[in-house]
Design a protein around this nucleic acid. Structure first.
Lengths: 339, 339
DNA sequence: ATGAAAGCGCTAACAT
DNA sequence: ATGTTAGCGCTTTCAT
């Protein structure tokens, strides 16, 4: 199918080297010759092969990005931030969706490795999967820079951009307590993920700071998906000693939670208060005043890619750099206590 | 950096060919030798280079997907559908977000071409950009299969999966008319896009079928983005001869529209009825009963990829195949006429 | 200013 | 059953 540099060379009556020179604007080439080559390229509708070039140069100019769920707006925003930097740096990006499965995450990592990407940004699905962490280590040993986003990997010391989840949750719960709540339920994420763990810690810390006993019955273990937010909220509503407020640990579960509340005709915050981790812009658009712990998501993506870029330039010098960003409490009224 | 097949061969004391054989499970290789090779691969932590392999085989096993906006749930679902088929076929996918810009679309196409992808699915940003359509033609001339999704490209006859936009809009408007509406505003998409055009045609057709005069003042030209839905709805609300219903041509503009209605304290459908093209699942989750013209989005993605797959197998035989899917009217009450 | 040739990592005849 | 070798399309010394 493809027309190659050889065809161009023949057509233009020059050598391969010369064509390569005009292609790369490198070395000397007489204007006249150059014209001929350019002409041939046009006529034959030629595009260089990134594949061949990569092989020769031992450089693909491609970075890999691995996220659990492209369709989750949280990751959508991270990706947007990453993309901007990628574009500006004239790199290309291979995006992998792991569908929240560690198995697929492994596959993605493997794929990216085969593609000889220059570096990788991973937002890990969980942090206690040995395979996973083993694979990441493999990648690192291979000498390709890694930047973590949002999550963390156990037994490792990768560069990364994180969020102070403890503080975020702490502040959210504090806001509820300040309103007068003491029976506060939490819907956590998969508890083997660092962020979920930390958010739970923040929850407990805030309660402790206010001498409120921790009621294990108020701790619900979800999996970051809408369905679990939905189901667990139903459970919450059925409790005899029903909490007066719910803290949801991520955006999808917040949706599920709201859905359940709606279906039960529970009004926010009249019948139930709520504070949610991760801003859901669509709720703002729709005029639903839900209080959020908002993370600077797009900025985090941007920062992660910038970090990666640094490591890409420096090579060898691969200095570990861990950046923690601060979430912001956005109170909109859903935390209010009405009795 | 990288360990190559040569290293493995040396370590295992065999030839390159033998290593390649165990790598690809091809040809004969004694179990004992095989063991040695596998061992060497493990020890050296080797992964084959997809780059080199692609060059040799003249086959990358990569397909390209180009969409205007990953963060729009509509495209998110299309991508999900595509991904499933891609995974099942053991292919890889390079996903490009054009940010609704024809310029970036062109760049993406160029990039994909350089990467020597096997085929491409494009959901075009607009259909009257000459460059764009020229580039698509280039790709086709190159002999790589193309499948269009959702949009269409002028002067071309590519394979593709489309939606009967005329019919969808027609039915949506009909539902409004049946409720008693006659003053119906439409917020269209960029009018140089085929889907937007067709949705407008459906709108006019339905009015005509009911002998309702078309009031050009009720036709608002948006750009498929939330902001335009928001602004245009505000305009609508300020009209002296205010419509009683709004038809929005895509999901993002629907959000903007609802936002504006909320801000003005307009209740749906008490003060304003609404029917929207493209289902917004999040609205269902939140218990907002908005009536939709729903397209089988994920299925469309799946189908498009299956089409591409066929063209990939057959090669040469690249039969043009255009599939039109039917939207479904989901009435939930927001179309009601209350006087 | 241009060309010849080696090599990037791998596969696929062709030999043996 | 295994090895040798010629490419795949390109870049890059090194000559000229």
């Amino acid at each position: 199918m493809a027309v190659t540099i050889k065809h161009i060379a023949d057509k233009a009556g020059v050598s391969l080297a010369t064509v390569s020179r005009v292609l790369n604007d490198s070395g000397y080439v007489k204007e006249e010759t150059r014209k001929k080559v350019v002409q041939a390229i046009k006529e034959l509708n030629y595009t260089p092969s990134a594949i061949a070039r990569s092989l020769t140069k031992k450089k693909t100019n491609v970075v890999g990005v691995v996220v659990p769920d492209i369709n989750n707006p949280h990751f959508g925003e991270l990706i947007k931030g990453i993309s901007k930097v990628v574009d500006a740096a004239n790199l290309n990006m291979i995006l992998c969706d792991t569908d929240e499965s560690t198995e697929k995450e492994l596959k993605a990592l493997q794929l990216l490795r085969e593609q000889r990407i220059e570096g990788i940004i991973v937002s890990p699905t969980s942090n206690e999967n040995d395979f996973n962490s083993e694979c990441l280590n493999t990648l690192e040993n291979l000498g390709i820079p890694i930047v973590l986003l949002d999550g963390d990997v156990k037994y490792s010391n990768f560069s990364g951009v994180f969020v102070d989840n403890i503080k975020g949750a702490y502040e959210g719960i504090m806001a509820l307590i300040k309103e007068g709540h003491s029976k506060i339920a939490i819907i956590t994420g998969r508890i083997n993920s660092k962020p979920a763990k930390d958010r739970l810690i923040g929850y407990k810390k805030a309660l402790a700071a206010n001498n409120i006993d921790i009621n294990e019955e108020y701790i619900f273990y979800g999996d970051y998906k809408e369905e679990s937010g939905y189901k667990l909220t139903q459970e919450i509503l059925n409790m005899k000693n029903r909490p007066t407020a719910i803290f949801t640990s991520n955006n999808m579960m917040t949706l599920g939670c709201i859905k359940a509340l709606n279906e039960h005709g529970i009004s926010i915050p009249r019948d139930m208060s709520i504070v949610a981790f991760d801003e859901l812009k669509v709720l703002n658009i729709l005029g639903m005043n839900i209080s959020f712990i908002a993370t600077p998501t797009e900025e985090m993506g941007r920062t992660a890619m910038e970090l990666l870029l640094e490591n890409l330039k420096d090579k060898e010098k691969s200095h570990v750099n861990r950046i923690t960003m601060h979430p912001k409490l956005l109170l909109k009224g859903s935390e209010k206590f009405k009795k």
